[in-house]
Design a protein around this nucleic acid. Sequence first.
DNA 1: TTTATATATTGCAATATTACGATATATAGA
DNA 2: TCTATATATCGTAATATTGCAATATATAAA
Lengths: 110, 110
Amino acid sequence: MGATKTEHFTEEQNELAIIAKALGHPARIAIIDYLLSVNTCICGDIVNELPLAQPTVSQHLKELKNAGLIKGNIEGNAICYCINHEAFDTLRQYFDNISKHVKNGKNNCC
Amino acid sequence: MGATKTEHFTEEQNELAIIAKALGHPARIAIIDYLLSVNTCICGDIVNELPLAQPTVSQHLKELKNAGLIKGNIEGNAICYCINHEAFDTLRQYFDNISKHVKNGKNNCC
DNA sequence: TTTATATATTGCAATATTACGATATATAGA
DNA sequence: TCTATATATCGTAATATTGCAATATATAAA
């Protein structure tokens, strides 16, 4: 009891859930927002942008990285982070499909 | 300690995180998938589609509803559920913007 | 080599989520 | 009214997440 029953769902469903879950925290949305606002790779600096302690930010970055939403390369003393296109393209496609699907369907009964 | 520090983030960031979080579980992705596959409102029947006990499914439906991802209307004995366009359009727009943003930027350094 | 800086890991407390049995509620139909 | 069916709520155990202090690691610069 308590743990998510991943084995009952498809690989696609589990994968999508993992990506969505990674975005399911305001600090991690804020990190993505920041990476988008600077519009380039950013080396260091992310910890100072967030109202959280360094270990907490490090943890959030790890989760975004595990979900494939960001990439990080060691750049001398700091780490250079940036958005990972592919993951966001996957999400864009998923929600684009849903929007199209819903528009063609008859989901207007509620 | 332990609780998410929502007060430090913008309303947009918190809202988006809430929606993403609601999709951050395979059972809830499966519910959305099912509602899309039937392509119409579905009255009752959702519990039988999932490999989880009825109270658990009820809980997941509640979370999707709270996040605004689905709508539910009482229809006699059963409840009629369907996808909520608006929430998914919000998500589509968000990820569409990110894709565009990233393509125009110089995020290819990593 | 020593010191400063950046990031990760560990350990732990507080809180949240997941799942389900038992039970409540509410409508439909006999 | 009584019974069946559909869904929600309650209570609770198992597990996961969040946040941070302390500490480890690793590179840069002095």
